[in-house]
Each structure stands twice: as structure tokens, then as C-alpha cells.
Design a protein around this nucleic acid. Sequence first.
DNA 1: GTAGGGTTAG
Length: 739
Amino acid sequence: MSTCYQKSLRAFLEHESVIKTKHQAKELHARLIRTMAPVSAILNSKIISIYSNFNLLQDSLTLFNTIDSPQPTKAWKSIIKCYASSGLFLNSLTSFNEMRSVGRIPDRNVFPSVLKSCVQLRDLRLGESVHGCVMRLGLDCDLYTGNALMNMYAKLQLPKAQQPFDEFPERKKQVGSFRNSWMGINHPDEVNVHLISGVGLKDMTEKPIEMEALGMDTVRKVFQTMPIRDVVSWNTIIQGNVHGGRYKEALGMLREMGNSDLMPDSFTLSTVLPIFSKYVDLKKGKEIHGFAIRHGFDGDGFIGSSLIDMYANCTRVEDSYKLFSLLPQCDAVSWNSIIAACVQNGRFDEGLELFRQMLRADIEPLGHSFSIIMPACAHLTTLTLGKQLHAYIIRTGNVENLYVASSLVDMYAKCGNIKNAWWIFDNMEIQDSVSWTAMIMGYAMHGHAHDAISLFEEMQMAGVQSNSVVFVAVLTACSHAGLVNEAWKYFSTMTQNHGIAPELEHYAALADLLGRAGRLQEAYDFISSMHIKPTGSVWSALLSACRVHRNFEMADKVAKEIFKIDPEYTGAYALLSNMYGAAGSWKEAQKIRITMRRKGMKKKPACSWIEVKNKVHAFVAGDKSHSFYGQINEALQDILEQIENEGYVPDTSEVPHDVDEEQKRYAVSTHSERLAIAFGIISSPAGTTIRVTKNLRVCVDCHTAIKFISRTMGREIIVRDNIRFHHFKDGNCSCGDYW
DNA sequence: GTAGGGTTAG
């Protein structure tokens, strides 16, 4: 081998960046072995460095182990970095530890990797020790190290729920044992970092809320002491504020960043976009969009999905679609964004269709994807589809994911399968307030008020913080079972013991309960004394109670209140007109209907749907459009005849039309839920449970008829109306006729 | 060394 060749080898090694591929790296190594045996530790370290830059962990390690100890600092640094970028964070930190124990001094290049490992392992105390080490070595002035430190504090001092890697509980165990060994070694360079953050560790674990603010304080302190800052520094501190929900501070930093002559980059933009999404500030969001286009960032996938999300949050789903179609390439996250855009705007069918398209495009769904799509199944009551997705979730190993599991609990509960909901809930490794709420709400909707309440008590015993949503669930449970005293108790507990201000939903639930219990005046006074202005829908809970209890005087009073607040509230007009119609006050009913027509209001058509053979079939009252209408109608007439023989007498008292009895009977007999049930009966094997969903309340006559059908046809029939579930079995309904 | 999407109510 010529000296010339050796020279070129040396040249390569001195300029590592000349090596462009893994292949070149290996070739270089091979030549080195052939020409220069034995290779010096320094040269081997250079090769390790090259290998580690290509993330060739095994090659780096093999070579590292051939070097007689003590290995050079450069070799250690490469190994630490390579471990960290291969996701082996624990090994990375162990190596860092070993490196120091053999007396090698870490330098500025190694700390970013080490701090990254602390973040990934979610170990704040370890991170603080590393910070101490940084300070001791006087490296806290280093730009990269400073940025990494800020990132570490910003990430690790968020509330637990927002921290990354919740899904790896086994990591926590590893960290625990590792930390013990780590803490046992008292390096001289481990200064007490609490002097910097100004808070003791004990306080940090015991006061989670303050901890968050103090964490940001530490980030700011690091930021302020940095002699030089670049875009990354600004992005990191802005990001920290955004994740902590301090949007004003984040936007303030953004402005300051501009003042210091630094241009926002794509990171900055996609970090601040969620703020405008949360604020539903379309104008500002569009400004960012414009800025992105002008600076050529609009093809960026990160910005793309933030924009899709922002437009969707401002209910501009069409704009979300447009952005999605313009993205140069779509990954799972962009798909998730557009699917969420649909689902969160009530476009469930489109969401499901997009999900299918995503699978067809060979994009593997992630845990996120399932928790986004599951509410669509829950809303549409597509139990079969939900089960298929559940199976898919198990296959893809996402069943442990907290969000996914909670969405499954909700889906099963909303699809009428409360047993499966409980099974999922009960088997969850950890449950958060959302999981508990989904389960409590599930029981509430199914009329199992006592299960709901005891579950709520259990949740509190488990130390899970209550929030306003879980109280909506508890009050709903009381409401569906007529538990007036319990409801009052929880309402006052919520405000007095938990310091949660009642919101419209809480008022509505209680007003509904009082109304249905016949305590109309009490409900009226309650709504009148609300500390926030009641909306039409709060009053309308009382209005429908007036209808049930046939109290016209109160109904008029309530209707006036509603029209004062919201003259366009269609529901109230419809309710009132039905009420008068049913009572035979045709003139009054007519007057209201004329008003509605003049205002261009349309009653929401009653609609029921049923899933048969993985397809959803929808029916509206008197609907003849279904391709099997002939058979459905025949079956329905047949069923009616049978149940009349069993003693069913049609109750037409709620029919709000001025027509003769025969026509009234016909009207109730073709209500949408009956069509759906009849279709379910003829298209499923005998004995199968029938599940029907309706967008409005079940009428009294249908409720009676379905009870008969369940006995006569020997079917369990589960009907979800717009407020709750009715389980019809053997001639009874789970609601005990109270709904 | 910095970035995107999620579950419960209405």
C-alpha cells in the first residue's frame, strides 16, 4: 500500500464529513485495518464517530470494545450519541456515567444527547444532575447545551398527563433502578441545581400545579443566562409556554423574537398555530398561513397538519380538506388531522371514509388514529365497525393506550354494550378522569344511576381529580333515575367542595331532573336564579317537562323566556306546537306552525338507524324509500297485528295533527324507530339483539309498542334516543317508564 | 438542540 494512499486515508479521517455513505464508512474502515495494523485508539475513535453519525450502533460498539481502556473521550461521546439516537436512552446514560467514572471529562458536544435521554426517560432529577455537571464544567454558556437544557425543563415540568411516553410504564421501573445506581455515585461536579431553580425536589413532587409554573421559570432562567440565542432557543421557550397553556406569554415571546431580528422558521409557525386554533382566531390563523406561503413553508407537513387543525377548529372543514389535498406527502399525522377535522365537526361518515382511504393508502394507523375515529363509531352506533376496530387495535398493540382505551369504553357504552365498556374499563392499567367519566356517563345513559354514582365515589377514593365534565355525567345519572335529592347533593358538592362553577350543562341536567320529577315551579325558579344567563336549551329541558306533565300555563311562560333569549330556537317552537296539537288546541298549534314557516324554520325530521351487515340503514317516519320497503312494511303490519292480539292498544294522544283516529294510528305505526326495528327483525336471525338509534326522543306509543314487540318476538331491543338507552326485554324497559 | 394529530359533556 502506497504512502500516497495512506495520506488520502488520513485526509478522509481528518475531514469526516467527506464520508457520505455507510458503505464508504465501512470501506474506509476496511482499508484502515488492511494498511495500518494495529490501528491506534485515536484512529478507531474517528471511525466510531463516523459510524455513529450514520447511526451504525452495532459497528460502533464492536469497534469500541476492541479499544483497550481507557477509551478516548471521542469514542465515548460517539457511543453515547449513538445510543441516544437509536432510542436506547438508558444505555446512553449508563455510558455517560461510565465515561465519567473512568475519568473522562464530557464536553459540550455530548450534553445534548445526554439531556435528550433524560427527557425521553422522563427523569427530571437526573436532568438536574446533568445540569449540575454542565455548570461545574462551565458549559452553560454553550448554545446547544443551553437549548437542550431548556427543552429538558420545558418537557419534564409539565403536568404528568401532558408528558410524553405515558404508554411505557416499564420504562419508569427501569429508570427507578437506574437512578439509584446513578445517585450513588457522587461526582464532584454534581452541584445542587436546586439553587438554580430555586425550589427543593420535595416541593416539586408535592405541588404539581405550581411545579408547572416554576418549571417554566427554570426554562426562562436558562434562556436569560444564555449569551447567544438562536431560532432553536426561541422555538424551545415558545414551545414550552404553548404546552403549558400560557399562550399570551408564547405570543409575547414570538413578538420579542421578531424584535431581535430572528425570522420565525417552520418550527415556530407550527408551534404557534395551535394557539389560534384554541382561540378559534381564524384571522390570526390565516395570517400565519399567509406568512407560511410567502416564505415557502406551506409544503411542510407539520405546518400543514397544524393548519388543517386550525381551520377545522374554526369550523372551516372545507379549508382543511383543501390544505390536505395540497400537501405534497401525507403521513399518518396528516391523515389524523383531516379525519379529526371531520369527526370533530360531526361529519362522522366522512371521517370513517377517510379512515378507510388512509388504510387503502397503506398508512399504518397509530394509537392517535384510533382515538380520533372511535367517537365516530360511538355517535353512529356502529357496533360492528367498532368491534372490528377494537380487534385491529389489539392486533396493532394499541390496546394499552389510555386515550384509545377510553374511547373504546365510550364507544361500547354508546353502542349499547355496557358490559364490554365495563370490561375494557376494568382491565385498563391506569384510568384517568376521562376514562372514569366515559364509564360513569355510560352507566348514566343506560339508566344505571346507582352504578354510576358508586363508580364516581370510587373514582374519588382512587384520588382522581374531579372536573366539570364528570359532574355532568353524575347529574345525568341522577336525572335519568329521578334522584332529585342526590342531584342536589352533588350539585352543591361540586360548587362548594370542588370549587367548580356550574356550567350550562349542569344547570340543564338539574332543570331537566326537576322538570321530569314534576317539580316544574322549582325548576323554573332554579333556572331563573342561575348565575350565568340560561340558553334556550336549558329552558327547553323544562319545556319538554311541561309537555310531559301537560302544564300549559308553565309552558307558555317558559316558551316566552326562550323566545326572549333565542327567537330562532326551532326546538321550542316544535315542542310547543306538538303540545298544543296533542291537546287538541289546533288553532294555537297552527299559529305556531305558521310562525315557524314565516321564519323559514324546519322541524328536525325524526330519524332512526340500524346497522345491518356492516351497513347503516336510516329511516325517517313514513319513509318508503328503502329498497326493502315492501317487506319491511309487511313485517311491521304483521308485528302490529300480533302485539295487538297480545293486548297492545295504540296511544295516539301525542299525535299533534288534526286528523281522525285512523290517520293518527297510521302516523304512529310508521314512526322511524318501528321501521328500523322491523327491518332489523327481518334481516337478522331469530333471537339476535336489535340495536336502533334515534335522533329524537322515543314517543310514548312507540315505547309501549316496543315493549310488546320485545316479548312477542322474543328479541332484546336496545334503542338509543337522543338522551339515553332503553333496553327492551320480555315486555319491559330498563328505564322503568321513567324517561 | 426545537415541531404536528387524541379520549369524556353539549
